[in-house]
Nucleic acid binder design. Structure first.
Lengths: 234, 234
DNA sequence: ACGTATTTGTTCGTATGTATC
DNA sequence: GGATACATACGAACAAATACG
C-alpha cells in the first residue's frame, strides 16, 4: 500500500482483493473477513476499506449483506434473447417462479409499446427465472387486457405461457424489437435477484408480436448486469 | 428530512434532488450548487450529501468533475444495433472521430470470436461517435490482419469503413451475433464518454460476417448505460 | 423465545490532498 | 499564486440487521 503514490488507497485495496478473488483465495460463495479484520489487514480506517468494498460490489465481484458479511459473487452466464418468444423450453429449462399476476392499467410506456391508450387494461404476469439454484432474471409480461381476458386462469391451468397463449389463437410469437439499457434495480428486484442495490441491472424491453404482426406481449426483463449476458442471434 | 424515519438521510436527499432534476429546477447541463451549499441546504454533513450525489451519479443523473462542480446529465437516446453493419450512413449521421488505429495481436477473446489463434495479427480501428455535440459510444473494430492487410490506409483514403471494406471484396456485412452486458468503464473510456468511472457502461460485442459467412469484424461498443439504449430490430 | 454479541449501515467531525478557475 | 471545489483519509458514535447462546 503506497500511501502517497498518486493512486488512492481504496483503489489499491480494491485491486488487491480483486486479485485474491481472481486467484481463488476467496472462491465464489466464500465469506470474506469482516470489515474490521480487512481494515486491520490493510492498515486503514474502516471507511477506507468500505470504499473499496463498495467498488467491488459495483463491479459485481462481491455482495454485501448487513449483519451477515461480504460474499464473493459467481461468474457470468449467457442467455438467449429474441427469436421465438414464450417457448415451453425456456420456461422449463430453468425453474420459473411466478412472482405476480394481475390486471393493471397501462402506464405510458407499455401503452405506447402495445399500441394502446394509457389506462387501458393490461394483464401482467411476472416471473423469476432460476438456474442452477440461483435467481437470474425477472421478466414482467404485459398483455393487452381486452384481447387476453382470462389469460391468467388459462396460464394456471396449462402451466406454461405458450400453451395459455395458444388458447387465444396465438401459435407463433416472435420478438420484433428489443431495447437494452442499464439502470439501478428497484428494491424488490434487487432482493429477488439476490444482488446489491447499487449494482446496475441490464434491462431488455421486448415487443413480441403474433404471426399477423399485432402486438401480443410487451415484456421487460431485468438481470444482474455482471452475472449475465444477453445474446442476440441474427 | 426525517432524521429517524427509518429511511436514510442520504436516500431522502437523493430523492429530493432527483425530483428537482426531473421537474426542471436543474435542467440538463446545469451546474448544481456546491457540495457545501447543498449540505447546508439540507442541514447535513458534507459526507452525507456526498453519499447522495454518489447515488445520483450511479443512476446517471449527474456527473461530478473534481474542481469544477456537479452537472446534470442529459436524458437517454436510442441507437440501432444489428442488421447491416458499417453503413456509410452510420458513420456520417453522428460525426465519428478516430481514436486509435493500429496492428495488434489477437487476445483470447477476439481470437475466439474471429476464429483465429491467439497472437494472430489484428487490425484495430477505434471510433468515438458523437451526436449533438456529445460523445455517445466508443466502438473498437477488430479485423483479421492477414485478410485485411492495408485496411487502415484504405480507410484513410476512402474516409468510411464500408468503402474501405469494399476494396477487400466485402460488399455486405451483416451482424451475426451480439452479446450485451454491463460493466464499469476503463479510465480512458470514461474520459472519452464524459462519464463518471463508477457508472456502468453497456457493452455490446458484435460479430459481423460477409455474404459468404466468414468473420470480418469483431466489434466492441461501449456506451454510457443511462444515456443510451440499444435497439434490436427483429 | 429472548437477550447478547457480531457485523454492516449511517452520520457527524476534522484534516489534508488535488484539480480547476 | 490564491481561492474555490471536489477527493481522500482518519476517528468516533450510534442504528439496524443478523447470528448465536
Amino acid at each position: 500500500m503506497e500511501r502517497s503514490g498518486g493512486i488512492a488507497l481504496w483503489r489499491q485495496i480494491a485491486q488487491a482483493l480483486e486479485a485474491d478473488i481472481a486467484s481463488g483465495v476467496y472462491p465464489p460463495g466464500a465469506k470474506l473477513p469482516t470489515e474490521a479484520q480487512l481494515a486491520q489487514r490493510f492498515g486503514v480506517n474502516r471507511h477506507t476499506l468500505r470504499r473499496s468494498i463498495g467498488h467491488l460490489q459495483m463491479a459485481g465481484l462481491v455482495r454485501v449483506e448487513q449483519g451477515r458479511g461480504i460474499f464473493v459473487q459467481a461468474g457470468t452466464m449467457d442467455m438467449r434473447v429474441g427469436g421465438v418468444a414464450h417457448s415451453a423450453h425456456d420456461e422449463e429449462a430453468g425453474k420459473s417462479r411466478v412472482l405476480r399476476t394481475g390486471l393493471f392499467r397501462a402506464d405510458p410506456q407499455s401503452a405506447r409499446s402495445l399500441g394502446l391508450k394509457v389506462g387501458a387494461p393490461i394483464v401482467l404476469i411476472e416471473f423469476l427465472h432460476v438456474t442452477d439454484g440461483r435467481p437470474v432474471t425477472i421478466t414482467s409480461h404485459h398483455f393487452p387486457g381486452t384481447r387476453f381476458d382470462g389469460l391468467i386462469e388459462a396460464f394456471r391451468e396449462e402451466g406454461t405461457l405458450s400453451a395459455a397463449l395458444r388458447r387465444f389463437g396465438v401459435e407463433d410469437c416472435l420478438c420484433k424489437r428489443t431495447k437494452v439499457s442499464a439502470r439501478l434495480p428497484s428494491a424488490a428486484d434487487a432482493r429477488h435477484l439476490h444482488m446489491p442495490r447499487n449494482q446496475p441491472v441490464v434491462v431488455a424491453e421486448s415487443l413480441n408480436v403474433d404471426a399477423a404482426g399485432s402486438p401480443v406481449d410487451y415484456s421487460v426483463t431485468r438481470s444482474a448486469g455482471q452475472r449475465t449476458q444477453f445474446v442476440f442471434e441474427g
